[in-house]
């Protein structure tokens, strides 16, 4: 061997060879597919993709469609509430679970169980629970409170929160388990040191433990964010987008236009907007996390 620094390209050849199929898949399927979609979102494709260039017409139409705008609003409400509520509830559950309680395994299974169900099942279950005819409302009325009203899925103003409840019920378990794993990874001596220092438990969580759990939070954030952006089946099972268009979501819009409305161009434009929205969030974050300054 020469004493020269080996060329980076030729180091670790087996690892690089092994990665080639995945790299090709990523390039061709993901990147290629995305670029193809973007390109055809600039055309007048209807039932089949056709290369008839119309510029940004599809986007103009998209943003002037009430249904799309409502979808985006809904995604925003659902996303923000879901993120905050599921993190708070998941973390609190995990913190309670971390107090060396008895039957921890049982509780963990119960709370994680909804995650094992498909969104369709969750959606249907909650559709029944929230149904005024035979759900919570009828039960409470049956107890004598005849003026009790609780029918979020039938009130266009709050229907999205009905969806949110179901989403939380399904998603919080996973967050709790991830957070619990993170909490368990914290050295017990840190807790002892904080106690000797006289720091109250909530402050220890807030200023010491949670900052130490940053990696867990980031992983969880990515998982939750992905599940929020692509939420579709929950809507279909629970409300079908109704009442009216009050619980429409972007993913449903895309699906309906591509396969139901036979308007590929419009579906492509919508999905490009979704991709763009994800990139706007992901790129600055990835840059902060992996690029720029070295970690220290």
């Amino acid at each position: 061997m020469s004493s020269e620094r080996p060329n980076g390209l030729f180091r670790n050849i087996p690892a690089k060879v092994a990665a080639i199929p995945m790299i090709i898949t990523a390039l061709v399927v993901f990147m290629g597919g995305s670029l193809w979609t973007m390109a055809y979102s600039l055309t007048k494709s209807k039932l089949l993709p056709k290369w008839k260039f119309v510029g940004l017409d599809q986007y103009e139409r998209l943003w002037s469609t009430k249904r799309w705008v409502v979808s985006i609003e809904n995604l925003f409400i659902y996303g923000v509430c879901m993120l905050i509520a599921s993190f708070v509830i998941g973390f609190i559950l995990a913190a309670l679970m971390d107090q060396k309680i008895r039957f921890e395994n049982t509780f963990r299974t119960i709370i994680l169980y909804p995650f094992a169900l498909s969104f369709i099942v969750t959606g249907l279950v909650w559709q029944w629970i929230l149904n005024p005819e035979f759900g919570i409302q009828s039960i409470i009325r049956g107890l004598g409170f005849t003026s009790f009203e609780f029918d979020p899925l039938y009130n266009a103003d709050i229907a999205i929160y009905g969806i949110l409840i179901a989403g939380l019920w399904q998603g919080t378990g996973l967050i709790m388990v991830l957070m619990l794993a993170g909490l368990r990874g914290i050295d017990q001596e840190i807790w002892k040191a904080a106690k000797v220092d006289g720091i109250p438990t909530w402050k220890t969580y807030l200023f010491i433990v949670i900052p130490m759990m940053r990696p867990v939070f980031i992983t969880t954030l990515v998982l939750v964010a992905a599940s929020i952006v692509k939420v579709y089946d929950l809507i279909v099972a629970q409300t079908g987008g109704g009442p009216g268009i009050s619980t429409e979501m972007p993913a449903k819009y895309v699906y309906d236009y591509m396969f139901g409305g036979q308007n590929l161009g419009q579906g492509f434009a919508a999905s490009t907007m979704m991709l763009l929205a994800v990139l706007v969030v992901v790129i600055p974050w990835a840059y902060l996390e992996f690029g720029g300054k070295k970690r220290g």
Binding site: D187, E189, I190, K192, A193, K195, V196, G198, M212
Partner: peptide
């Protein structure tokens, strides 16, 4: 009494410093 009220300081094997 609470640990912080006992007039003690403690040093641990794993240092237990607050990393952030």
């Amino acid at each position: 009494a609470e640990p912080s009220d006992r007039g003690i300081g403690m040093v641990f094997q794993s240092y237990a410093l607050y990393p952030q």
